[in-house]
Design a protein around this nucleic acid. Sequence first.
DNA 1: CGTAACCTGTTTACGTATTCACAGGACTCT
DNA 2: AGAGTCCTGTGAATACGTAAACAGGTTACG
Lengths: 233, 233
Amino acid sequence: MASSERNLQTCEVPDATVQRLPLYLEKLKLLQAIGVEDVSSRQLAESLDIKASQLRHDFHYFGGFSRPGRPYRVEKLVTALEQIIGVDRPVPTAIVGAGHLGQALANYPGLQLQGFPIRAIFDVNPKLLGLEIRGQPVRDLDDLEPVCRREGIKIGVITVPASSAQEVVNRLVAAGVTGLLNFAPTELKVPGHVSVRHERLTVGIMALSFKVKCGALARSAAGNEPGPLAGSA
Amino acid sequence: MASSERNLQTCEVPDATVQRLPLYLEKLKLLQAIGVEDVSSRQLAESLDIKASQLRHDFHYFGGFSRPGRPYRVEKLVTALEQIIGVDRPVPTAIVGAGHLGQALANYPGLQLQGFPIRAIFDVNPKLLGLEIRGQPVRDLDDLEPVCRREGIKIGVITVPASSAQEVVNRLVAAGVTGLLNFAPTELKVPGHVSVRHERLTVGIMALSFKVKCGALARSAAGNEPGPLAGSA
DNA sequence: CGTAACCTGTTTACGTATTCACAGGACTCT
DNA sequence: AGAGTCCTGTGAATACGTAAACAGGTTACG
């Protein structure tokens, strides 16, 4: 058993690889749902538009998921990846800020499905306090600490205005939250044991805009050649 | 004039640089709003948690924005970056899918502010057709092509279920849209002249989960040392 | 049984991105 | 005027991520 699996708990993994693990898991779950049992690195990689060698290279950080000659077992891979990513058991998650975006996220079934059940929603706006979203009431921000502790909240999703983000973060961290998904367009100061990830809508759309502008220029400059099927920016 | 500015229309820029340009622009606009006129590479870089040398390196692709010895002029930088990114004039944008996420995006003021006015919203659900969001009515998907052409839509935001994403994309592309911001958890086939960017919530939160799990392991393994202030995942 | 087609784990080579180092210009203060 | 400090532009060096190549192992089939 210790022969094939080197260590599922390695943390010295390149960032680029970490960002691909969720893609693998998502696709594998899909395959599992439609009854596929085996999958080769080539099949899986091609469906995600990456090279098979890279996929194997990524998996290699965690030791072998199969043996040479045999394709991967979908079920085994899903289990292993869930454990690696840390969603082998549900990760209690809270949303702070029940504005449009917060509500949209609370309503999004994907979070629950991927292992991040929303166990609390907070806001300061008294008008929202009655609201209930997928079984969770919008709570007053004053109750943040006790509720987070009681529910064992691990990850906080920040959907408050930039001006109040830092204060919310401080309180979440004090309440034991160690992961923050930040949608507010501002940097955050956190202790070293807390991880932050920024999700910036405007960055995405602006990077897209750059590509679009470049594409337009390229086509107006050179004789326009539509080119074959391809995408991704 | 041609001496200092090499070319604001270069497209041979590393992807990593492209992803940072929006960050620069966003921060610079903020500085501009509070009346800051000059900014050095160090100041700007530190506020974004990156190295000053990298910022200069990024700018270097487009030629000089200043002269050695003089810090950058905020206004000049903003203008230049807007032109580079392609938001020197508004980029008409459409949202397809007026569910929770689509509505949240339509309500998000940042898009308009950063140069992406929402000029159309579409959905198939008849119950949503009456709805009006920030002055824009939710339109029937059947009207997609004529409305997109009339409004000169350049970018389409996909917030429909994965199952209908490809069809929507085909229609948008046929209607002249050249940039797609895809929130549906699925790959998209598009012609070569169209750029796609995927925004996947679950990828973000799962990558975060991995970091959190690693942090917890590291702290339980070694004697827990809280470490200095630092973040980002 | 042998061969051909696949497959994974692993190493090596390649390309890209980040960081460092430095050459000069500008401004301030004495 | 001169020294010191801060600044940018630029190229070299380092670190990183990607892609390719290869060394086995497995199965299917004639």
